[in-house]
Each structure stands twice: as C-alpha cells, then as structure tokens.
Nucleic acid binder design. Structure first.
Length: 429
RNA sequence: GGAGAAAUACCCAAGUCUGGUUGAAGGGACCGGUCUUGAAAACCGGGAGGUCGGAAACGGCGCGGGGGUUCGAAUCCCUCUUUCUCCGCCA
C-alpha cells in the first residue's frame, strides 16, 4: 500500500512502476484513484461543513434549554433532524467512495527500488553472487527422503495415516538434526544482536487480513474451526501483527528480532506437494528475522540481513547463491527482495531456502505501525528474512554431508547440538 | 468455563452515577529560566498535543474496537477485545 499522496502528486511515477512490473491491467487504477480521491475530498468538505453546523446548533439547543426557551429549542431540533437526514446519505456515499479507493490502493504495487532488475517472471530473476563451491561428488547422491529413510530418520507413511500427505515424522538423529539447525540458528542470530522471540502460533482474522491479501489467505492459512483464529504460515505474521497500530519512539529503533515458530501452509495452488520428500510440506519450522527501522536505514538492513543467512549456511558447509527477484516476480508489497538458494549436489542446482525482503513503509502503512520523530509521526520500514526453515534446509545439509558409504557428516557447528555426534550412520541391516 | 472490576492523549490520572463551550482538569515527561563547578532536586515561566480535509483561517473525527439511543455521548444501551481479582479446569 503506497501513500495516496504519491498518486496525487506523482501519478506518473506510480504508472511507470506498474509498467516495470508488467501489470498494465492496473494502469487504469491510478487515474480511477485520482478521480475517486478528488470526489472523496470534496464530499468530506461538504460533510464536515454540515457536521460543523449540526454541532453549532446542538450547542445552541443546550443553551436554549438552559434559558428555558423550550419552543425555540424544539424548532432548532427539527432543523438538526433535517441536517442529519442529509448527512446520512452523504456519509454512505463517502464510505462507498473510500472503500472503492481502498480496494484499488491495495492493488497498486509498492514502488520498487531503482536497483531491482526488470523482468516478467521468476525466469528472469538474476543471480547476484555465489558463496562456496557448488560441489558435485564423484558418487551418486540418493534422493534426500531415501537418505533419511536409510538412516531411520523419516517416516512419511505413518504421517500419511495420521495426517495425510504433506506431513512427516522425523525420527532419531534426523529429528535431532532438524532441531539442532533451529537451535543453532537461534543462537547465531542472538549473537548478531537480534532479540529472540517466540510468538503466538495462531492469530486472529483482523491480523491475517492486515498481513496478506484475501487470495493469499485462502491459499495458505488453516482456519481453526469455530474460532476466529488461524494457524500462522510464518512467524512474520505474528511478529508484524505484534506492532499493529503501535507508535514506536524513534529512539527505540531499530527493532531487530529473531523469531521461532512452526509454520502451517495449505499450499493450495502451488506446485503441489512432493509425494515422498520434505521440500514442500504442510508443516515446517522456521527461524526468522524481522526488523523495524527508520526508512533511511532500510537498505543497509536489507543487505545485512541476507548476508547473515549466507554466512549462516556457509558455516554449515552448504554452498549458496543469492538470486534477486526481478520486478515482475516481486510481490506487490515489496520494494526489493532476494532469495537465498542452497546448492543441491544431487540435483546439481540451487533451490530456495530463504527469502529476504524490504517492504519499505507499505506494510507499516497498511497496519498503522508508526514511529515518533521530532518532525511528527511517520510510517517506519519493515523487513523480514529467513534464517533457516527446516526440514527443507535439511535437504541441503544432508546432501552436502552425504558420504559414499551412505553416512551423513554433521556440520561442525551443529555437533554440540547433537551431543557431540559427528556422523549419522545408516541403520545396521 | 463462571462471577465481578476496569480500559481516557507519550506515561500517570480527573471527569462517567446526574449527557450540553471537555482538545478533555491535574501531574510527569518536554522546552526556557533561577539555583549549582556540573548534574540532580526545588522553584519560576512556556508551548504543543492524534488524525483527516484545507494554501491558510478554520473545520471534521477522536476518550480500547464496532454498532445504537439522542438535537447533542468520554458520560446512557448493545457487542467484541484486552487487563486485573475470585472460583473452576488443565500441561
């Protein structure tokens, strides 16, 4: 959601931005908003004037009653009744117009950063930089689910019975590895100065509506039967919701938090769940970073945040690259975004393990998150990024640590979280 | 889950019973000064207040959210949310 003032003052910029995102069908929205806005402001002026009159009359009625001029007061009352009748219609009209404006404003994309590469869709995303060698060993690496099963670490069959497709039982050392990555990620971010936070795993509909569109909500969120509650799809939902409607003193910025949560996703309309694997599932766990900062600091934070994820994966001996989202692939709320992708030695390609985004003040504007400055209150900037999501990231860790004898070497930094275990060995047959 | 009490601006807090110049008393914080080597404290003085419209003058909205009654609502009614106390239940 952009500032409507930008549309008033620089409609051209907004239109250029829409073109950059290849959403020509939205171009007409800009002029529609301009017209509606004009209408709304005019209407407000008329309504304000009428209300001012009503307020004045009401005060006068009060005084007349005090003076016991009942007759006169009753005459005035009648006038106010008439004013109120007029107002009723106008207020309805105003609400209608404002709703129409809002509907359109929600569709107009945020102004993207000048540095964002122009492209239509994800095929035109741009690799920025590789970190570590994308190694391909001279022995074959099995499918990650097979590796896990051979290690006695994964049971999707049972999960199918209890919960259906898209769920899993992690067992033994693999379960412990999963937990170890999250614990290590937590400590890694705490060391970077982030505040550790465990948020609610369910949120109310008003918060959900604040953080995503209706279509997204339908495709992602699980609703709790008989309650106004949804399972979160990421801790970002609760972490940003935490600040809804809040005014934060500029001196308290930046707020840098690292949050843990399980994440639940319906994955409706996505590429579908993998039958056997752990790549796309209904339930996973994630360590996240969320930052609120002054708009002027946002880009610096953005660069810091994705580089933390890179550093994190490198410390696990996983090779990664950063892939910048091109204009057409960038979600409408985002100013700039990149994925961190991990190397899969088996598939010999990179796959997404995290996503870093700066939303400018769009999210804050939508949720009413402001900062108090010497020059008045203004909307602040919000950013979010994945540290690690598991079990998806286990795919990279397991494949990267896979040995020709079927064992998996545990990255050094995770060993303390595994009771000192260095290698996970296949079950003895 | 049951029964009570409460929610007022950045913070604390009056006003709610008995509806009417209430942008909303009084503090604190804030700004200026006196005092002090400096600071704190104390004392004196001061302006501003959130948001929308407006070039401005000014006006609208706004007392947890939403709705209602009324000529007029912080004040009365309904509803939701949250907090506190008590009871019940539970890791």
């Amino acid at each position: 959601m952009i500032d409507i003032k930008v549309i008033r003052e620089n409609a051209q910029l907004v239109k250029e931005n829409i073109k950059k995102k290849f959403q020509e069908e939205k171009l007409s929205l800009v002029d529609e908003v301009r017209e509606l806005d004009e209408k709304a402001r005019k209407l407000q002026q008329e309504i304000d004037a009428l209300r001012a009159k009503r307020n004045r009359f009401s005060d006068e009625i009060g005084l007349l009653f005090k003076d016991k001029k009942i007759e006169e007061a009753n005459l005035k009352k009648q006038e106010v009744v008439e004013i109120n009748q007029q107002l009723l219609e106008m207020e309805e009209e105003e609400a209608r117009v404002k709703e129409e404006i809002k509907k359109r404003m929600l569709l107009i994309p945020n102004i993207i950063d000048d540095s964002v590469p122009i492209g239509r869709d994800d095929s035109e995303n741009v690799e920025i930089e590789r970190f570590g060698e994308p190694v391909v060993p001279n022995y074959e690496i099995p499918y990650h689910a097979d590796i896990c099963e051979a290690l006695g670490g994964l049971d999707k069959e049972s999960a199918g019975r209890t919960s259906g497709n898209g769920f899993y039982y992690l067992v033994g050392d693999i379960a412990r590895l999963h937990e170890a990555t999250l614990a290590y990620a937590r400590d890694f971010m705490i060391d970077k100065g982030f505040t550790y936070c465990i948020p609610p795993f369910m949120i109310r509909s008003d918060v959900v509506e604040g953080v995503m569109s209706f279509a997204e909500m339908d495709a992602m969120m699980y609703k709790i039967e008989g309650e106004d509650l949804y399972l979160i799809g990421t801790s970002e939902h609760s972490m940003i919701g935490k600040f809804k409607g809040q005014l934060i003193d500029e001196k308290e910025l930046p707020v840098a938090m690292t949050s843990y949560s399980p994440c639940f996703r319906k994955e409706v309309g996505s590429h579908g769940l993998e039958e056997r694997g752990l790549y796309r599932v209904h339930q996973f766990e994630k360590q996240e970073m969320v930052v609120l900062c002054k708009p002027s600091d946002a880009m610096e934070w953005y660069n810091k945040m994705w580089s933390y994820t890179v550093e994190f994966f490198r410390s696990l001996d996983v090779s990664v690259r950063t892939l910048e989202c091109c204009s057409g692939d960038l979600a409408d709320l985002k100013v700039k975004s990149c994925d961190v992708e991990a190397w899969s030695p088996r598939q010999q390609k990179y796959f997404e393990v995290g996503s870093c985004s700066t939303l400018g003040d769009a999210q804050a504007r939508r949720l009413g998150i402001r900062m108090k400055t010497e020059n008045g209150n203004q909307f602040l900037s919000t950013l979010n990024n994945t540290v690690i999501a598991s079990p998806r990231s286990l795919i990279a860790i397991i494949e990267s640590g896979y040995q020709s004898d079927g064992s998996v070497v545990i990255p050094k930094v995770l060993q303390p979280y595994m009771g000192g275990l260095e290698v996970i060995k296949p079950k003895q047959k």
